[in-house]
Structure formats: C-alpha cells, structure tokens
Design a protein around this nucleic acid. Sequence first.
RNA 1: GGGCCGGUAGCUCAGCGGUAGAGCAUCUGACUUUUAAUCAGAGGGUCGCGGGUUCGACCCCCGCCCGGCUCACCA
Length: 497
Amino acid sequence: MSLEQELFEQRLARIPEIEKLGLKPYGHRFEFSHTLSRILDEYSARTAEELSERVNVKVCGRIQTIRRMGKAGFLHLQQSTARLQVYIKKDAVPEADFALYQLLDLGDIIGVEGYLFRTRTGELSVHAERLYFLSKNLLGVPEKYHGLEDVELRYRQRYLDLFANPEVQKVFETRARIIGSFRRQLEARDFLEVETPMMQPLYGGAAARPFVTHHNTLDIDLYLRIAPELYLKRLIVGGLERVYEINRNFRNEGVSTRHNPEFTMLEFYQAYTDYKGLMDLSCELLKQVAIDATGSAVVNYQGVALDFGNIRRLSIREAVVEFWKGPEKPTLEQVKDPEWLRSHSSKGTPGEQLMDIFERHGEDQLVQPAIIYEFPVEVSPLARQSDDDPSMTDRFEIYAAGMEIGNAYTELNDPREQRRRFEMQLAMRERGDAEAHQMDEDFLRALSYAMPPTGGEGIGIDRMTMLLTDSTSIRDVILFPLLRPEGPIGIGEWLGK
RNA sequence: GGGCCGGUAGCUCAGCGGUAGAGCAUCUGACUUUUAAUCAGAGGGUCGCGGGUUCGACCCCCGCCCGGCUCACCA
C-alpha cells in the first residue's frame, strides 16, 4: 500500500471517530461572524491591552498548520489569502471539542468560536471556546515551507495550488479586477455588452485554424469561433452603435507561454470613430486598467517599469528603423522601397515582407507600452485602406514587454472592397495558407445595408493579466490551462472501500 | 513539430555502476502561549513506463509517456 493510500485510510478512519463525538464529518451551514481577512483588517493594529475588552468572533477556514502541546495547542486557519492563529486550551473548551481538536488533520475545514487576544509572542489569535467540524480532508497536503512547486501539479490540481499557494489567488483576483475595470470603463462610455455565437457555421475575424465540432440534430459541422468580430460588426449595422464582448476565442494552434488554445478577448466596436479615435481611447482604457489592477499606471514586469500612462505611437516603418538589429540601419525611405524590402525578406509581397522584417527587428524590443500603426493590406483583410497609401490600412497594434496585447482598426465598411479582400484571402488559401480568411456572404450582405464608419479593437485579457501580475506564462493567469490528460488516478477505488 | 532540461517517499529535494537518503508530513509517547514549536521512537519507495548493456542499473544505451523552457505558428 502506498503511503498516500495509508494516509487516506488513516483519515477515512477518523470519520467514525468524529461521528462518535456526535458531529457530522461533512456539510452543514456555518454562520460565521467575521471573515479572517476582516479580523486582520480591523484588529491587526490593536494592542493586547486594547483587546482586553472582549471581542467575540466566530470564524471558519482550512487548517494550515497544527502545533499540539499536550493539553493545549495552536493551529492556523486559512480562508482565502488570510490566515489567523487559533489557541485551544483543554480547560477553555468542552471536553468533546478538545477530543475533536486531537483528531484534526491538516487541510480539514473547521469553525472556531472564541475571543481575540494576543499571544506572548504578540500574534493576534482566537482564544477558542468552541470548535465545529465542517469538512474532512483525506489527502496529504503540500509542505508548509515550500508550498506546491511542481508546475504540472499546480496546473492539473489548481484547487490544491490555490490553497497551498495563496498568492496564486491574488493573480486571479487581479484578473477579475482587470475585466471589471474594462467593463466599467466601457459602460461609462455607453458601450453595450453583448454575446455572440461561439459556435459558428463559418469562422472568421482573425487568421487562425479553428476547432471543429458537430451538431447532431442539425447534422452540421460547426466551428468554435476564432474571433467574434464579424458578428459584432453585424450589430453595428443593426444600430447597436457601441458594443463590446468579453469572452473566449479558440484557436487550433500551438501552445506556448503566450498561447493557450482557448483565451479571453475583449472586443469593442464604436460607430463614427476611426483608428485614431481608438488610439486615444486605448490609452485611457489601459492606463485606468493598470491603476485598477495594481494601484499605479507604472507597473513592474520582470524587473522593468512599464508605464501605461505614457504610451508611445509610431508607425511600423518607424519601428523598423528605430529598432533595427545590425549595422546598416535603414532610412524611412528605404523601408518604403520594394527593392529594399525584397532584399531583406523572403516573403511574397511587400506588405508581408515589411511585417516579416518588423517581427524580426521590432516586436520583441517593444518593451514599453507602444502603439504601432499602419499595417499592410495583405495581413489586414477587414481593415480600411489608408487614404494616402492604398497598400496600407488604418490599423494599429498595442505592444508591451515584447508581446502583442491589442489590435485595432478603422473597419472596412465598403462591401465591394470587402468582397475583393475575401477573394484575395481565398487566393491565399488556394496557395496553401490554411489560416487565410473564408468568404462570408451574409457578412457582405450586412455591409451592403450600410455600416456606419466604425472603429473596432481587440485586447487580449490573458496577456494584459500577465503584464499586470508579473507572470511570465499565460498558464499562470488561466485557472485551468489545457494539458494532456493525466491517465488513471485511482482515488475512486479508495473511496469505494 | 524541432532543440535543450526535468520526472527518486504525500510535499520539497539530495544521491549514484555495488544494501535507496534528508527535511517537512504521517504514526506512537512527552509537553497548558507555540509559531519552519521542541524532544524520544516508528512506519513509508514499481527511483515516470518498457526494452537493452552488465556479475550487478535509480545511475549507461534505445524507445515511449508526462511536464518545463525555447524555436517555429499565432494573439
């Protein structure tokens, strides 16, 4: 028998012991008077004398540590990220409660009723007068000093990660604040939150390979969406002039520290503005999100201070010139010259060549938050062409810490040009580009009813969360990142005995 | 998918071609203000899986599984 199973059975055997004390090992309501964090907030500053006026509390949580010393002892209760010490003395609690105390295991969930005091060493604690048993832990818990460090276990058993490493909870609290901040800011600007299909008969709105699924009754294949864009623009046609959606996209592509197959995007569309208007809006949104998430517009990321209150704007071509790696720094004129582009990239068209060069020479050096604008038309099938250069579009991306975190453009609303772009994409698909855009005739029909001039933008919530929580892997900001299945676990058999 | 690194007790980690180790956790005992509690004792391992080399493999070789980093693709 493995040690783990031995431990499991030892603990299972405590259940009848607990029942002998007249207690239920699982499941009933517990009316607490304070959360642990409220006690810490309100009483951490109180001295022992100030606590001599009795403060009654009834609290609950998971047992994080136990120190037994014969006829008395201590334990730490943990609730969310807060922890509070409890002192149990044989004379101060009913006999059955002290018997219960002697049966407790690390990880059990209990309630404690008593009063606050400070121990001889000065730690704020609850002097227990009653104990309540709330739920039994049957498994060994990670070591108290190091916590759970095995990355695989942390992702597979996130529940364990969350209570063994309470700072992980903070990451997800920050993530929720980030989403809340975007919502509040957009609502304040009269944007309407909407939900559009995640299962789509045609996929579009981005360059990516999709997941395919099947509806049995209709007997049709459906795609998990790669972006909500085409549906959100249909809503603009319909007169919902400011809409946004925060939800999952699914892309059937590689997994890395920056990519999870499902990830969360904010997309918003505003009629009667353009990409320049969105640049201003983006700067306002990002600055406030940083403040709401971290308390400051200047955020520490991997030892670098990223300033979301001061976002630079430069064109792709300017970025290539500025961040050129190598001796022969090009001029702006050269970067516009097709000859020069061809001699520095093996890609097919000038636009693709420029993007290729930018990705090699600019992207990873955009550490401070920056807006990079003017993207080639070939890589922007849904964006409006620039008036002064039809090979470029009115589009920008937002970069920080070398990562793309946002993408925005003046929406293409000319249905004839949109049709031409779809044809272009189909030709690319013919040439073997599996990520090229599909033709969407219903979308063309919607545009044919006239879509107002519109600016649209997408912001990657996971990547924003990485930046604002100082996380280097997207898996650290997704509660349950995709992993291969782990195989048989075997606990069902133990529980069945 | 390629390259590099890793998988040893429940957790965190040593180890090494010659009898599998430590700390925490667990169990027994002592202890009525401890705090990485302390003290005395005990139990606990398919060394990721499968082959091979060898008198002998946790260790060397091959294949596979799982994970991390990285490159490619992408956001």
